[in-house]
Design a protein around this nucleic acid. Structure first.
Lengths: 352, 352
DNA sequence: CTGAAAGCGCTTACAG
DNA sequence: CTGAAAGCGCTTACAG
């Protein structure tokens, strides 16, 4: 910190100019072998470490990728979904020597500020936006300002690159499983926040599957949650309090299913005996509940992975071509989902 | 990105010097009210955003705190413990407008590199080290280099500030619960990696509690794990394969208990009927297993919180006093633990 | 109250 | 192959 040795010190002692010292240290082939050796030697002796901030300033690059998640830190760090996202992103950033900057909001109602922090500082070379509402305009500002940006989720706007999952097919399959395998003719649904396209699309998949079997969703059988455990708890309480409670529920994510299971337990009920449950995500938790959850697996880590790869491609691609608008701009990558059958639906299957 | 408007642009159009423009934008009271207004107006018009990298360079501060965890990203993001740590840290950094930089290692055997990344770059104003082995010398380099650093865990070296938990008392209480409440006279233990002081200290607590009741730990009743679910699984398999398997196990953390429960299930056994289990951590998972875990609660989020607060205090304290070696240097903060009784130990208690 | 200058530590053309 | 200079965008003394 204090009096750190600088390039200037190294250069002086090595008896060369700062420029030469710089090139030596960066292994620029222009510099003479012997000179380089000497410089490196002195640098080692003085324990010289390049000042990264100065480098970044010089290069006008931060070597940082921001992940913007317009929710509170508490939300983000308690939802296993984001863990998977972070893991995927981190793995690729590590490869590129980049750093991850997680930007959350101080209050759930103040989603703006997660964006603001990045926009204000411009302290990132690129941005990944996750779990934003489809209606969230903030997200688009990054793109407008020329930031390389990749969305995780369904953003079908022009010119935006996104990676997502086939929520529709996943929900459809989950629904059909309850109808065709278990013979239910009435399904309830605890959804995520419907201004999120993931929640909306899962609902659509459910509705279509119902319709394909000439079934309908009763208005009282739909509870809109927010993907939290609490919401699943409340939602299930509501459903079982109905005069004629549903016997099968498709729940928008695993965390809500955990809450739903709790609500059942408290009411002296259990899944799948009283209520069959099919869920979405297949996070680690899904195997631990009792019964373990039948759930639509989405490749969460791969989402992060792929978002980061695409972003890095754009960042390095930009450097190569000098152009800011080429490459994958506006593409939508979609991963397949897969129903993992465990026991909450009434199957007696294994526990994989 | 490209042609961003700079202070110079603003200054020119506003018809003032760059210095004045700078002061105006930073609300320096020296500058005349009218001048400031004009500058601000022009700045808004041009959508001027200060270049944060330049600012950092100028101030030689990164506004970033590094959290160094010498494990792989995959380890870090799958252990709920770290979620709690991140949450606590993030909440305070948000308050100070600082950014979090999570530094992990590409390979579990390569713990060095988590440190290296920070050391090399110096791209952080301060460092929090978590989950380092007691033998891990790397950690001390930060302090040697004059970095403000706070350890999470038990680091009783001179001059190092740490925040930790009373592992000893927690383990002692857990052990006594099994002995005194449930009447066991033989306990097994699945520990964390014993080069980590948390694991070592929990083992010590167990041993002391046993000894206080004239009991001993059989060598074959100790399995050294690594805090992973897998380790708990393997450890429990080993224990139940003994000729005379133990009927009660103290397990070093909740994640291993999850694995242990799996092993029991596969063997057609269950807790607490066949084996009573008391665990450590009380992460979210602990409530979800069946049976829910009786476990020693440690205030994980508070650890992160407190580590970050201490660090920020030092960082801002340093600024105030201009001295780098004052304040909390070398203090050890210790949080209390508390046994949360659920059902894995054989109690029939509630589920809180 | 404001302008001109120096400087944070590096890298990168440009001469030589 | 190397040195001297310019410059990345800001802030902070220092004159005036």
């Amino acid at each position: 910190m204090k009096g750190r040795t600088t390039l200037k010190d190294v250069a002086k002692i090595a008896g060369v100019s700062i420029g030469t010292a710089s090139m030596a240290i960066n292994h620029n082939p222009l510099v003479n072998e012997e000179t380089r050796k000497k410089v490196l030697e002195i640098a080692a002796e003085l324990e010289y470490v390049p000042n990264e901030i100065a480098r970044r300033f010089q290069a006008q690059r931060t070597n940082t990728i921001a992940v913007v998640i317009p929710h509170t830190a508490s939300h983000v760090f308690s939802h296993p979904y984001f863990n998977g996202i972070f893991l995927g992103i981190t793995e690729v950033l590590e490869k590129y020597g980049m750093t991850l900057n997680i930007s959350t909001s101080p209050a759930e109602t103040d989603e703006q500020s997660a964006y603001q922090k990045i926009l204000q500082n411009r302290a990132a070379d690129g941005v990944i936006v996750a779990s934003a509402a489809a209606t969230d305009k903030n997200a688009f500002r990054f793109a407008q300002l020329g930031y390389p940006v990749v969305f995780i989720g369904d953003f079908l706007e022009e010119g935006i690159t996104s990676v997502g999952v086939d929520d529709y097919a996943g929900a459809f399959e989950a629904t059909e499983h309850l109808i065709k395998v278990h013979g239910f003719s009435r399904l309830a649904h605890i959804s995520g926040p419907l201004e999120h396209s993931s929640a909306r699309t899962r609902l659509d998949g459910l509705l279509e599957a119902l319709q394909a079997h000439q079934l309908e969703l009763l208005p009282s059988d739909l509870y809109e949650g927010d993907y939290s455990q609490e919401a699943g708890y409340v939602g299930m309480k509501r459903l079982i309090a109905l005069d004629d409670p549903p016997r099968a529920v498709f729940i928008g994510n695993d965390l809500m299913s955990v809450g739903a299971l709790q609500a059942l337990g408290e009411a002296g009920l259990s899944a799948p005996k009283d209520v069959a449950i099919v869920s979405f995500d297949d996070v680690h938790l899904a195997q631990l509940t009792s019964p373990p959850l039948t759930t639509v697996r989405q490749p969460i880590k791969e989402l992060g992975h792929s978002a980061a790869e695409i972003l890095m491609e754009r960042l390095t691609g930009d450097v190569d071509t000098g152009s800011w608008q080429r490459t994958t701009d506006g593409q939508h990558h979609k991963f397949e989902t897969k129903l993992v059958v465990r026991r909450s639906c009434g199957c007696t299957g294994g526990d994989s």
